[in-house]
Nucleic acid binder design. Structure first.
Lengths: 126, 126
DNA sequence: GCCTATCGTTTAGTTAACTAAATCTAACAA
DNA sequence: TTGTTAGATTTAGTTAACTAAACGATAGGC
């Protein structure tokens, strides 16, 4: 599962699942409808697709299905990021980091966090 | 042009164009064939698509077309990155930076570069 | 017992990226 | 001048994501 093969809406569904753990299709529909309109049957069809590709699974509870993620969020982030790095930044993660720091807003708090991380990296290299 | 709507192979084509400037379809095909097999007619069809969406344009030189990019690489990187940040990292660029530093290989040289960048950022905040 | 709201399933249609063969055209070589 | 080559264009087919109406079944309310 290379994860990048998730579409935009499928990713929205996964995010609801990652956040809530076990979730019904109806709950997912409601969640997404807070952001943008979507028909319940659409969500169900997409869940089917996600299940086929092994990203989620379900159990029956009474007559309704409770869905849960099989793919971990961390793994997904990893492969989505690697895909971008490979395709757009010539495989150099550092190049993406530079791009982000130069062109995107990063809060002072996040900067501190980042400073700590690179200090750790430097130590490791010794 | 939100750029993320470029497919994988279309992006390969754009990269050849960004690197070489004015380029014929044949040169692009040859370039891509160094990486993976692709038919010339496929490249031509994709160029057509790119032209329709305003990413490239061409001029006739004799009987052959010379293509050139209309979209700038920097802009593309920007929107591809923003898309990832938005879709996968909850809109927080810093969160992606952290992820990269924690999980991806970044060379010592790149780390130095990054350190300089965050020093600049810190100064700006004062 | 019957209605209706809510399940999951089936069916069907759109769009975009990709693929490449087939075809038409013009140049160039022999 | 005739045939091969190398252009561009046309045509056509696949796959994946998305969309949602329509349908059949069932649980719960009245």
């Amino acid at each position: 599962m290379t994860a990048t093969q998730l579409g935009r809406v499928q990713l929205l569904i996964m995010q609801v699942l990652w956040e809530n753990g076990r979730t019904t299709a109806r709950q997912i529909t409601d969640s997404i409808n807070e952001i943008e309109p979507i028909a319940h049957s659409t969500v169900q069809t997409l869940l089917r697709g996600l299940e086929e590709k092994g990203a989620v699974d379900h159990e029956a509870e009474g007559r309704t299905f409770v869905f849960f993620p099989l793919v971990e969020e961390a793994n997904f982030k990893q492969s989505a990021t690697r895909d971008l790095v490979k395709r757009v930044f010539g495989g150099k993660a550092g190049s993406l980091v530079s791009h982000l720091l130069k062109n995107e807003k990063v809060s002072a708090k996040e900067i501190d966090e980042i400073r700590k991380l690179i200090d750790q990296q430097s130590k490791k290299k010794k």
